[in-house]
Nucleic acid binder design. Structure first.
Lengths: 214, 214, 214, 214
DNA sequence: TATGAATGAGTATTCATTCAT
DNA sequence: AATGAATGAATACTCATTCAT
């Protein structure tokens, strides 16, 4: 009888605060899988284990949910990246390697769906696109720029404008990310993350190294 | 009888044959802008200058139209690339440069929207994704591989597996492409195609060059 | 065989122009019966003999339909009243009687539901209320005022401000109208239009007559 | 023990008994403003200063609340009117004047919204309509009839059937009432209660007066 | 009693698809 | 061939009602 007081009993109140993020997580999966328009709130709710109406207790409408997904998931990641760079002491080459490795980790989480989402929906959500461009990409660019500066100062890197270099650095990583969340799931072409990114990093650092002195 | 020679008569029948591709072109623009689900056939028809019902004279349904867009637009481009590579004679470095430049041209055409489209919709169109992976990417990989081989044989390139290298080569190009067709339209971050891709090519070739002999 | 060309054949094109007013008529009935919020567009469509979607070909949404019902049905009636008054020549007493009789006719048509509707929904449709106040009531007041003036000039009526007198004249008529479209349909109290309004008119004219000279 | 004498303790239990009528008052305002279907129980609860769930402690459902609003608010008023008439001694003309004045007072209270409500919702609540017709209107008619009788007996009024006369007497009053609670809130037509009703009463009594003997 | 989180039936609205002209 | 009016299935969103706390 007393066993009925199982540890899951206070489900209601405990879940209350978890709800928004549970919903966001479910929504991210669905949006990334099908895109905004093709995602049914019914499915989001089902995946979150709640009913349709409950979604509306926490988000005004489908758009607001979408925006929450993009905004709330990305910023913490960026902040973590910035913290790492700020506190780092050793050689810039290792810093860049560390960043690349963490990128891979993000890629393997559900978070990896967000870039695909923003890309796909920027036509329908100009504000999200602007947010992403100004808050994520621009911030990422500053971060990348500071890493480069550091390397240049320390004589480890050639001095190339960060705006021109970032797409070169990010492009292959992003491509693998998108690949994994879209086409890569089907068909028979198999890229191997590890070796691709290792190759990329090797090439990138090799090409960034200062000219060998004669 | 003589009326048949009116100047408008031939225009009609001429258009008759152009219709499908006019519709495909219109559909590509709309799909790329909004995604499959959010695109209304009304808008496609309007953009093609015809009525909604007419679309159904040429395409069974919206899905068929989408598949036609992806299939019919891409294959000719690929074929052209293959022809170029097959007939090329000079140094591999120049070949790679030439490919990169043509890539940029594709990027600037409406065709650039297709990768974004396939990416976005692969969750909803597994067949398209498979088609793209197997017919486009795999074929592109073979092409890229043959260029690399050529360079290796001629002593111009280091010998690195094409599967690992292609994402490194394509990633930055694709990224600029996607950027241009999505986020880049909004916000204040401005990448410059020319310099980014020039930087990329320079870095790539530099890193691919054989080790300088001591 | 040739009989197939029955006179109902061109149903499609003939109805096209009739559709909006058919829908408005159906909507008036439903709105008047149940009120705006409780009316289902499905029911409106069914009553008009069309499908739900068709309503949206002619009206942007439920609100627009409601506004069309109120606006398009009332103005013609008002105009007819004004025309009658303008062209009338005889004694003002008879004019007033004529007006009252026509009022009764309106009452017996579906149009009678509109005042009830405007009344009921003025809280939710301030614009409709304003339109009704300024375009219908104010115009009616001017009309009533001109009739009164006429009578005063001709020595038939005492001189009482129209703003104060109109509710006295209209109130009983309106009450019978509302009664008929609402409570009167239920319960066991039976007012008889004819005698009530005859009594009203008699009382009104009697009270409006100039003091008998001593 | 002594804590029970805290000043807040009695307030609570005092309110406990007031709750239903507080809810009814709040509901009346909301129903009158928006109609039954468009009224949200959330808003009623908020206006009553309680939570939505609490409404269900006192009323089975929204319908029951609506019926309570109409039933419980009207009957006491009617009873008061009847008491006044029963105990009145003086001239019938003054009685009628007194009734009219009290009518005005009711008009200015929230109670004035009830007729509008019953009118608007009689289509959806036949029982309410029947109740109103049989319990309120019929009873009012009896009341009015007894006043008339009194006047006729005393030689103050002409003898006109009450069924025909009541709408003439009530119509203008009701119209001002409805006006105030609906259209009159918007637009620029301004009727002045006092003078309109004074005019009405004057006209009515003048027309009801017996023919002057020659 | 009182709360307010959760539910899901009910509706407005959209849009791919059909088909009479 | 081409049209565009008509359809109705599909889906976002609301809100009365329930119930664990």
């Amino acid at each position: 009888m007393t066993l009925e007081q199982s540890p899951t009993a206070p489900r209601r109140s405990r879940r209350k605060h978890a709800r928004p993020s549970e919903i966001i997580a479910a929504a991210l999966s669905e949006f990334a899988e099908r895109g905004f328009a093709a995602t049914k709130l019914d499915d989001v709710a089902a995946r979150a284990g709640i009913s349709k109406g409950t979604v509306y207790l926490y988000f005004a409408d489908k758009n607001a949910l979408f925006e929450a997904v993009v905004r709330q998931e990305l910023l913490p990641v960026l902040a973590r990246f910035e913290a790492i760079v700020d506190s780092y002491q050793g050689p810039s080459v290792d810093l860049l390697r560390g960043i690349a490795i963490r990128f891979e980790q993000v890629m393997d989480s559900e978070l990896g769906g967000i870039p695909k989402l923003v890309l796909s929906e920027s036509g329908n959500f100009p504000e999200i696109a602007r947010f992403y461009a100004d808050e994520v990409v621009a911030r990422g660019l500053r971060l990348f720029s500071s890493i480069l500066q550091r390397g240049v100062v320390r004589g480890e890197f050639r001095d190339i404008p960060a705006v021109d270099l970032m797409p070169v650095f990010v492009g292959p990583v992003l491509m693998m990310l998108l690949w994994k969340h879209s086409i890569g799931r089907h068909g028979n072409v198999a890229f191997d993350h590890r070796t691709v990114l290792a190759t990329h990093l090797d090439m990138f650092l090799r090409a960034l190294a200062p000219e060998a002195p004669r």
